[in-house]
């Protein structure tokens, strides 16, 4: 918690303590801590001098501001229609097999979370996934295996 307090203090210096600073602060916390814990939202509320309910209410509106514990690497697979047509389900199955987690779950040790998301803006190159901010297009089982094994290796 000391770490979180320190982080939020630094972020309030970077982004300011006005209401309009809220989204950038929450985005940076998610980047550092993978999700918004209750403690971090309460601390943000204290620093911005608004109620914690306001912070939670805002955070829970946005799908990228996770209020549930997530892994270090968030895999978001596009489920919009053209990606669906090009094999989204196979993509999900392949990732589930490799990581041994289902959609919505986080792997043991908190490395990976697997999520579905709406259009990622790469419809002509589906199926597509985001791993944190990185885009991976035209996924095949081989490409998925290669990509994920790099993340797995990097972690060790």
């Amino acid at each position: 918690m000391v770490g979180t307090k320190e982080l939020i203090k630094n972020l309030s210096v970077k982004h300011g303590i006005e209401r309009k600073s809220l989204l950038p602060i929450l985005q940076d916390i998610v980047e550092k801590e993978n999700f918004l814990s209750n403690d971090s939202m309460i601390e943000v509320a204290r620093i911005l001098d608004i109620s914690a309910a306001e912070v939670y209410g805002t955070a829970s509106f946005f799908s990228f501001l996770d209020t549930e514990a997530r892994g270090k690497y968030k895999i978001r697979v596009c489920k919009s229609i053209t990606c669906d047509m090009k094999g989204k389900n196979e993509t999900i199955k392949c990732i589930e097999n490799i990581l041994k987690i289902k959609v919505g779950e986080t792997s043991k040790g908190g490395r990976f979370s697997l999520l579905e998301t709406n259009c990622l803006g790469w419809c002509h190159k589906g199926p597509v996934m985001l791993v944190n901010d990185e885009v991976y297009t035209e996924l095949t089982p081989e490409k998925i295996r290669e990509t994920l094994s790099e993340y797995i290796r990097e972690e060790k």
Binding site: R19, K20, L23, T58, F62, N118, C119
Partner: peptide
């Protein structure tokens, strides 16, 4: 932060205001 409706101009503005 991942919300389609924020493309609507007034929703976009609300979100920029931290809401």
């Amino acid at each position: 932060s991942g919300a389609y409706v924020c493309g609507e101009e007034t929703a976009l503005i609300e979100s920029m205001e931290g809401k």
